[in-house]
């Protein structure tokens, strides 16, 4: 889309605001599914902006890649997240204040740079077909970039497969039988490592079922399921909302 004047300006501002709102929501959402798709929303706005800037091909490719990427990221979000559905309100942040200060400073610095640097006004005329231009560049002067990208992607595929599969370098040579004893590589020294942040919080999982004491605390790495851990009384940590909650709808 060429420089559509006022109309493109309005849309670009709207998309910019949307992108930032979604980006902020990514870290405020409790549910991982919502965080993932807020990130998708933000990156779709980025794709829209690139489209508005005249790079049609790259804009649409970003939209395509981000949709597929966030769909797959959703799988890992659920796999590794403590609270994928957002049903248990919990926060997994550390020194949020420090991070906020640093990123605020970075933003201030960048904004100052944007407004103070005298950007050169003259610009070369935009080529008729930027995609053709990109293709020529990738196959011509930027062939080295193309080669490194190709090799990087190939290396990533091989590395991902070896790292992720159980028969890779880091998994047990023979995958542990589903219910066999824990593999040797769960050393006991992680039994009670020094973790200041966790001490004051009730380390074991908030229980919702009175009659099944699955005391699954971080320290309890022994393979036996449901061993009632005398040291941790069951009732701590379960929210004061025992029965008959109203439904969100």
């Amino acid at each position: 889309m060429t420089d559509g004047g006022v109309w493109a300006g309005v849309v670009s501002v709207v998309l910019a605001v949307l992108a930032v709102i979604c980006a902020v929501q990514v870290f405020r959402f409790d549910s991982m599914a919502r965080a993932t798709y807020a990130l998708l929303g933000s990156l779709l706005c980025v794709g829209g902006e690139v489209l508005l800037l005249g790079l049609d091909y790259l804009g649409v490719v970003i939209v395509l890649m981000m949709t597929v990427e966030m769909a797959l990221m959703g799988v890992f979000m659920v796999m590794f997240m403590m609270n994928p559905g957002g049903l248990m309100p919990m926060t997994m942040v550390h020194n949020a204040r420090g991070a906020a200060v640093i990123s605020g400073l970075v933003f201030a610095g960048l904004t100052a740079g944007i407004f103070l640097v005298p950007w050169p006004v003259s610009r070369t005329r935009a080529p008729a077909d930027p995609t053709h231009d990109l293709g020529r560049a990738l196959m011509g002067p930027h062939m080295l970039t193309m080669m490194t990208l190709g090799l990087a992607l190939f290396a990533a595929i091989v590395a991902t497969v070896t790292l992720a599969t159980a028969r890779g370098r880091y998994g047990p040579s023979t995958p542990a039988p589903p219910h066999g004893p824990k593999g040797p590589e769960h050393p006991d020294e992680t039994e009670a490592p020094e973790r200041p942040h966790e001490q004051e919080a009730a380390p074991e999982r908030p229980h919702v079922r009175e009659d099944s004491p699955h005391a699954h605390s971080r320290e309890d790495l022994t393979p036996s399921h449901g061993r009632q851990d005398p040291a941790h009384p069951r009732e701590t940590g379960s929210p004061a909302h025992p029965h008959g909650r109203e439904d969100p709808s």
């Binding site: 910019a16 992108a19 930032v20 980006a23 902020v24 990514v26 870290f27 933000s42 980025v46 991070a99 906020a100 640093i102 990123s103 605020g104 970075v106 933003f107 960048l110």
Partner: peptide, 8 residues
């Protein structure tokens, strides 16, 4: 803005 939110 995106860069700093990501950094946060």
């Amino acid at each position: 803005a995106l860069f700093s939110v990501g950094l946060y």
